[in-house]
Amino acid sequence: MVRHAMLMMAGTLVSRVLGLAREVLVAAFFGATRSLDAFNVAYTLANLARQLVAEGALSAAFVPVFSQALQESRERALSLGRQAMSVLIAASGLVTLAGIGLAPVLTHIMAPGFDAETAALATGLTRWMFPFL
């Protein structure tokens, strides 16, 4: 179990370093433009939804319960995994649809100072980014 935890930690570290590299490259290529601001708002909204649904309480609650079920029987653990996956897919689908439908409201809450053109771009990008969830 410690080995798997270390692998998760290493994966998270690599992810963070690659994220930093992405931000440096984006800033170098695009600078500080309204289009980039619109993209950042859309990305932040979709990423926040992903963190809340896929990486939030479900992950923290699932691993200990799954480990205990796995000690009891492999079949029970697989059944639990299938049930959790079903709930995760349904919740992700609902949040994605809600995010797409509420994109104008979410964009306005996240960036109330955008002019009409930038807000429309951010709304459209948010609708494209939400399936990222």
Rank of each mutant, 00 (worst) to 15 (best):
L78C: 08
F29W: 10
Q51I: 12
A84Y: 02
G93F: 02
R22D: 15
M9V: 13
E72H: 05
N47S: 12
H108S: 13
A84G: 04
L121F: 00
L80D: 04
T12S: 13
D37L: 08
R22K: 14
L70I: 04
S73M: 08
A122Q: 03
A42L: 09
L88K: 06
L70E: 15
A98G: 10
L133F: 05
E55S: 14
M129G: 06
A32P: 02
L48C: 07
S86E: 09
T44F: 07
T12W: 10
V87H: 05
A46P: 06
I89L: 07
W128H: 11
V17P: 05
L20I: 15
A103N: 09
G124V: 07
V95A: 06
A32K: 06
V63G: 04
T12N: 12
L18H: 12
L48A: 13
L70P: 02
L78G: 07
V63R: 08
G101C: 02
M6F: 06
V41A: 12
F62M: 03
A84K: 03
A42H: 09
L88N: 08
T12E: 13
V53P: 06
A98D: 06
V87M: 07
V24I: 11
A84L: 05
D37C: 02
A57N: 00
A10W: 09
A103G: 08
L78K: 13
T107P: 04
L121A: 04
G101V: 02
A46F: 00
R22T: 15
P104T: 03
L7T: 14
L52K: 12
L102W: 01
V65S: 05
M9C: 11
L106F: 00
G124Y: 07
L106S: 00
L106T: 02
N40Q: 15
A10V: 15
R34M: 07
P112V: 06
D37H: 10
L121P: 01
T107S: 02
R3S: 15
E75I: 05
F30R: 14
F114R: 01
E72M: 01
G56F: 01
R16W: 14
L25C: 09
L78D: 13
V63L: 12
Q68K: 07
A119I: 03
F39I: 06
A54C: 12
T107N: 06
G99I: 00
A122G: 06
L13T: 12
V14F: 04
G11C: 10
G99N: 00
A27V: 07
A90L: 14
R3W: 08
R82M: 03
Q68N: 08
L13Y: 01
I100A: 03
S92G: 15
F132G: 09
A103H: 05
G101K: 02
A28T: 01
R34P: 06
A90R: 11
T12A: 15
A91Q: 04
T12V: 10
L88F: 07
R16V: 15
A91F: 00
F39M: 09
A28V: 00
V14S: 14
V26Q: 11
Q83D: 14
L97F: 01
R82D: 05
T123F: 00
L7H: 14
R34V: 02
Q83S: 13
V41P: 02
T12I: 10
S73V: 09
F39R: 11
S92R: 07
G19H: 05
R34N: 12
R82I: 00
V63Q: 10
V63W: 11
A60V: 12
